[in-house]
Computed example of a mutant assay.
Amino acid sequence: MRGFSCGRRMLAVLSAVALLGGCALGSAGQDQAGAPRPVGAVTMVVPFAAGGGSDISGRAMAAGLTSVRPQMRVDVDNREGGQGAVAYSYLLSKAGSPNYLLATETSLLVLPLSVDVAFSYRSFTPIMKLGEDYTLLVALPSSPITSCAQAVDQSRHRRVLAGISGALGPDAVVFSEMERVAGGDFDTVPYEGGGETMAAVLGGQVELASLNPSEVMGQLRAGELKALCVFADQRYTYPQLADIPTSVEQGIPVSFAQFRGMIAPGGLSPEATEHWISAARSFAESPAYTEYVASEFLQPRVAFGQDFAAYLEESEKLVAQVVRR
């Protein structure tokens, strides 16, 4: 994948900048370090720009936590840059503080496997895995490409530009897998989030894009985009998505789920860790969680604390097979 290697070099530079910024914040960032629970307002850090799936997830978690803990205030802070590295480096500087959370997803695993950053998922405290999110391959209705299989075939014979959210995120993984298992050859163009990727495909800057269902549902309903496939083993059961064939059905054996989750800084006290896991469990049992999952078309597969950490460990092994090939 020609764009993948280019994005890799770009991210190495951006990550270095992010790490320098994180170091500068370190001494001033130990807010309430070691405290058993947050004091005052809590910050939900979002690693990508407003409008994408991570932003939607972060805002849903912030609102959901306050719905089950009315005395709590959670502010959302979008810290995009470095394909997520800026936000993770920022959270790294908040070690021990229960006043910070981060809306995480698969870039937490991909970044440390791909570039020289000072963190891995082990640097943080896993709180909750909200669910799993399979992406769609979409194009303008006027595009001659009508399926994932045809996208692979076209990429072998001509230049096909594909927009992705993050140079090394889940979208990059699915295109990399399409090349590995099916012989495609795509030019990927990384953007900072789903909103920018959406604008690029709608504006014709790229021909294809990998986007989450929640990011693209409005455009599908309006006929502004068409879905070529979902990168999954089985079709979605949501009525709005049930007619979209899987990549596997089309002879492209690529299935990859992005997880959505919540982490806290590393070094939390046991009391602070339990505080957030308890709040997360209450959120998972609330109408706010049910509404979020349905509105974002997620698979509601939850995990908390050590179970979330075990999921991350297994997922890291899978991602490493793709990223390090």
Rank of each mutant, 00 (worst) to 15 (best):
V74W: 07
R2V: 09
Y292F: 15
A309W: 01
A35S: 07
P213H: 00
V206S: 09
S142N: 01
S295M: 00
A227R: 04
G22Y: 00
V160S: 10
Q71F: 12
S143W: 05
E291T: 03
G81K: 01
Q205F: 11
E224V: 00
V68N: 08
A95H: 11
T135Q: 11
A309K: 06
R281G: 07
Q306M: 13
A209G: 08
A50W: 01
T237P: 03
V42Y: 03
A162V: 15
E132A: 14
Q150R: 10
L111H: 00
E274P: 01
V173C: 10
T246M: 14
L130M: 13
G204I: 12
Q150G: 11
S54I: 03
A172S: 15
A60W: 01
S143E: 06
P265F: 11
G267F: 11
V201M: 08
E296F: 03
P213E: 09
G51H: 06
V42M: 12
S247A: 15
V152H: 04
R325E: 13
G266Y: 13
L20N: 04
G34R: 02
R159T: 14
Y100F: 15
G96Q: 13
M198F: 02
G64S: 14
D116M: 12
G81D: 03
Q258K: 06
S15D: 07
D133L: 06
K94I: 06
R180G: 12
A182I: 08
Y292R: 03
Q154N: 01
R235V: 09
I56L: 14
L111T: 10
G21F: 00
R260K: 13
S295K: 04
V115A: 12
S93G: 07
T273D: 09
G195R: 06
D243N: 14
P144R: 10
R325T: 13
E314I: 00
T106A: 15
E224I: 00
A182T: 08
D153Q: 15
P47Q: 07
F283A: 06
A272Y: 03
P98W: 04
Q71I: 02
A139N: 09
A172K: 12
P190D: 14
E285K: 08
T43Y: 01
A95F: 11
S120I: 05
I145G: 08
A288T: 10
E192W: 05
R37I: 04
I244Y: 05
P141Q: 07
L92V: 07
Y236C: 02
L102D: 05
I244T: 06
M262Y: 07
D233G: 14
F283P: 01
L109P: 03
E285Y: 02
R122G: 03
F304H: 11
A309T: 08
S27M: 05
D31I: 12
S269R: 01
Y121C: 12
N99E: 10
P253Y: 06
D187I: 12
S142L: 09
A149E: 14
M128C: 08
V42Q: 08
Q83D: 15
G218C: 02
A303M: 10
